[in-house]
Design a protein around this nucleic acid. Structure first.
Length: 426
RNA sequence: GCGGCCGUGGUGAAGUGGUUAACACAACGGUUUGUGGCAUCGUCAUUCGAGGGUUCGAUUCCCUUCGGCCGCCCCA
């Protein structure tokens, strides 16, 4: 029979992996909760049109990376390639703009799908944690969003990173600048790389962070966004920067930072890992403000801001920078039957210990003592509970502390002593 | 979507056109019939990602395919 394996760019997470995921997810959820974000779960697939309108029909994500299919009634559906658009759809659909508590602060955590060539830190199914603050435009909120992401990094022990920040200005600034860029690059069209020629009329901002044309003379003389920023947009951005400076957040203004989704306006940012071993996909999280998105999807004229964070990438960085984060001891005790005749007796003790909320397991293969002790060592289990025919006859058991190398024989009536010993050494 | 490197047991890996596929770690068993971490001995790939071809014979050569990694690209 032909072997069927997992789809390219997807991953099975085995026990070692899921253990790490639980740790990282808990940190993420704790930080989100502390900053008063609440979880929103939206479907994995949406109407294709939502992403086309939301993300932008000229973007790479929409034009070549979506998993799109027709359902049985011929409706075009798409596996979500990012989280913001679906969150905004739900925000509008449930009229969250009318809720008592404003702004609406929500987060999501789950799989996203993009058809790309897999490499380290880039899979076709990957997980994003994202937050959105909707219904207000405020420099404090911009800072808060960035700080929330950085707090997750900090809790994971990630230090080797850089915060890049820029502003695209408000819609009007952005539009004026866009036209200026087209006007400017039009005269040099033949000097641009083929990708940039395509970008020229569709998404001229992206020409600025093109790596091929990066060093060309025409790039250096290109119009600068700051000359097109309205006074208001400029003041707004400076306020965001002031707040970050006050809080001693180190950042770097990157005026080439543009981002690939169409909906961004004003503050945009990207936090990148500086670990060489992380691979070429270094962005940990990135996002920005979007003024027009909510209205363009049929909601009110309100602003929002958020980021998407690549959880796999965070995990890769945490494994490099802070591996001890994942040393977690999950079993306190191991029951060792010394003979197959005492399996039932052992099992009964095991169950009673579990009822006392002790994490424990026992040996079912009737292995040698040597093997059982090795098992404990390998799994960092501190206590062994030994039971033989003698103990069964006397209604007792032996509790052994493998760290101090001491042991005691106790009556089965005194099982609760086990819990005391474990708690005293926890 | 394009270019490059690669794919051998649970893991890390050596190797060759021809019936022994090294070595190390891990695992399991004995030395030690009910007490570990050391030591010592032994056991562990009918098989070299998959499919096809060349050949008397292929893990080793060729083709295809799948997958991984790196770069481009893109982004989280």
């Amino acid at each position: 029979m032909e072997k069927i394996s997992k789809v390219r760019g997807t991953e099975d997470l085995l026990f070692e992996d899921t253990r790490k995921w639980h740790i990282i997810e808990k940190i993420i959820l704790d930080v989100a909760t502390k900053y008063n974000f609440q979880e929103l779960r939206t479907p994995i697939f949406e109407h294709t049109q939502l992403f086309v309108k939301g993300v932008g029909e000229t973007t790479d994500v929409v034009t070549k990376e979506m998993y799109t299919f027709d359902d049985k009634k011929g409706r075009s559906l798409t596996l979500r390639p990012e989280g913001t658009t679906g969150a905004i759809r739900a925000y509008i659909e449930h009229k969250m703009f009318g809720y008592d508590n404003q702004p609406v602060k929500l987060y999501y955590l789950g799989p996203m799908f993009r058809y790309e060539r897999p490499q380290k830190g880039r899979q076709r199914q990957f997980n994003q944690f994202g937050i959105e603050t909707l219904g207000i435009k405020s420099a404090q909120v911009d800072a808060e969003v960035i700080l929330t992401g950085l707090e997750v990094c900090q809790k994971l022990g990630l230090k080797n990173l850089k915060v890049l920040i820029n502003t695209l200005g408000d819609n009007e600034s952005r539009e004026n600048y866009r036209n200026a860029l087209i006007e400017y690059f039009k005269q040099y069209e033949s000097q641009l790389c083929s990708d940039c020629q395509k970008r020229l009329y569709k998404n001229p901002l992206r020409i600025l962070d093109c790596k091929v044309d990066h060093d060309k003379e025409i790039m250096k003389k290109a119009p600068l966004l700051k000359d097109y920023l309205s006074a208001e947009a400029d003041a707004y951005f400076n306020n965001v920067l002031d707040i970050l400076i006050n809080l001693e957040v180190e950042y770097e203004i990157d005026n080439r930072l543009v981002r690939g989704l169409d909906y961004y306006t004003d503050t945009i940012f990207e936090v990148v890992s500086l670990n060489k071993e992380s691979g070429a996909q270094s962005t940990l999280f990135g996002g920005g403000r979007y003024d027009g998105l909510i209205a363009s999807l049929g909601g009110p004229e309100v602003s929002g801001i958020g980021f998407g964070m690549g959880v796999e990438r965070m995990l890769i960085s945490a494994e490099i920078e802070n591996p001890s984060l994942f040393d977690e001891n999950y079993l306190d005790l191991f029951v060792m039957p010394l003979d197959s005749a005492v399996q039932n007796y052992s099992f009964k003790i095991l169950e009673q210990l579990r009822k006392m909320d002790i994490g424990c397991d026992m040996e079912y293969f009737n292995k040698s003592l040597k093997a059982m002790f090795k098992y404990c060592e390998r799994n960092k289990i501190r206590y062994a509970l030994l039971v033989g025919e003698q103990e069964q006859a006397n209604n007792t058991f032996i509790l052994k502390d493998l760290v101090n190398n001491t042991q005691e024989e106790l009556s089965i009536e005194l099982l609760s002593t086990v819990k005391e010993r474990i708690e005293n050494n926890a």
